[in-house]
């Protein structure tokens, strides 16, 4: 029982992170019918942005930019003593990383995807793979290929639960933040005018234009939103497991993509559900079978879903009426 409870908590916490990334895949697919393969790498950049925000660029990095060796840029929010490790610090680091990645997402859309939008979808897909490779290899050049250890943004501790299970405070905080972000996203998508425009663009691009919607701006906004959530996921992952490297986005990105397909690609609640299911299944396999199969689970699920319900759990087959 305690294993079950423990793994359930771990799984929901991990799954919430998959959900955050899956949302970016699903939203971009919704508006552009494009699988943005670079999305997992934006998540990686998010984690690194969190790292540099907290730790700074280092003495050499700051001097390369002509800044002093012990300023904020060199030592970061934590290293310079500007902030103490606390929840506020974690939130500040996460929000700043989100803002940076939102801009990155907009830049990727503007300079990589928009120019090829008028060509076939395959062209866009290949472009996405290109952007992904650029970020992975560029990341190795800029950030360095070896793993970095993410600083502790707040003091973690273990909380004993009934039945012998224990939970790390980081897991609870990750879960709470992820849920808050998802609720926030729901509000944006279903309660605001911009959200309404996003849904219109994803239902029917031409009709959306005819409503007077500036669809280019909505598509850019969708990339900003998705990339910000990926960055949040990057920081949250690094809070749970503080080891980051420039290729960390590949596998997690693929799993989140599977989560989006599982929920029904293009479907926002579906991406949330899919992420949670993949996360929980993965930790259950680790708990009850063997950690060896951890990474295979998502892909086994992908095969099953493609065989039995290709439109995903919450996805619907669209019909046109004459």
């Amino acid at each position: 029982m305690s294993t079950f409870l423990q793994q359930l908590i771990n799984g929901v916490s991990l799954g919430a992170i998959y959900s955050l990334i899956a949302l970016g895949y699903t939203m971009v697919y919704g508006v552009l019918k494009l699988i943005n393969f670079a999305h997992g790498d934006v998540y990686m950049v998010g984690a690194f942005m969190g790292y540099y925000l907290a730790n700074g660029l280092g003495v050499r990095g700051a001097q390369a930019l002509g800044m002093s060796a012990d300023g904020l840029l060199a030592r970061g929010l934590l290293g310079s003593g500007a902030m103490e490790p606390s929840l506020i610090t974690a939130l500040a680091v996460m929000l700043l990383a989100m803002a940076i990645c939102a801009a990155l997402g907009v830049i990727i859309e503007r300079f990589a995807y928009r120019p090829v939008r008028k060509y076939s979808r395959l062209t866009a897909l290949i472009t996405a793979i290109g952007v992904s490779l650029l970020l992975e290899n560029g990341g190795q050049v800029v950030f360095g290929a070896d793993p970095k250890f993410f600083p502790e943004l707040f003091k973690k501790r273990n909380i004993e639960l009934f039945g012998g299970a224990s939970i790390n405070s980081a897991d609870i905080i990750v879960l709470v933040i992820a849920l808050a972000l998802m609720i926030g996203l729901q509000l944006v998508v279903f309660r605001t005018k911009t959200g309404r425009a996003m849904r219109a663009v994803s239902f029917n691009l031409q009709s959306a234009k005819l409503m007077g919607i500036n669809t280019d701006r909505i598509i850019a906004f969708t990339f900003a939103l998705g990339s910000a959530l990926a960055a949040a996921a990057g920081v949250l992952v690094a809070i749970r497991i503080p080891r980051i490297d420039p290729l960390m986005g590949i596998l997690v990105g693929l799993k989140a993509f599977v989560a989006a397909v599982l929920g029904g690609i293009g479907n926002i609640p579906g991406a949330m559900l899919g992420g949670l299911l993949i996360g929980v299944t993965e930790t259950m396999v680790v708990g009850y079978l063997s950690p060896t199969y951890k990474d295979a689970v998502a892909f086994a699920i992908l095969i099953l879903i493609l065989l039995f319900r290709p439109s995903g759990l919450l996805g619907s087959v669209s019909q046109e009426k004459v």
């Binding site: 849904r199 219109a200 239902f203 029917n204 031409q206 009709s207 005819l210 669209s318 046109e320």
Partner: peptide
């Protein structure tokens, strides 16, 4: 300028 497009283009899910 406004248009009712060919095939109507209504937002089926709304």
């Amino acid at each position: 300028i406004s248009m009712s497009p060919e095939g109507r283009g209504v937002f089926a899910n709304l």
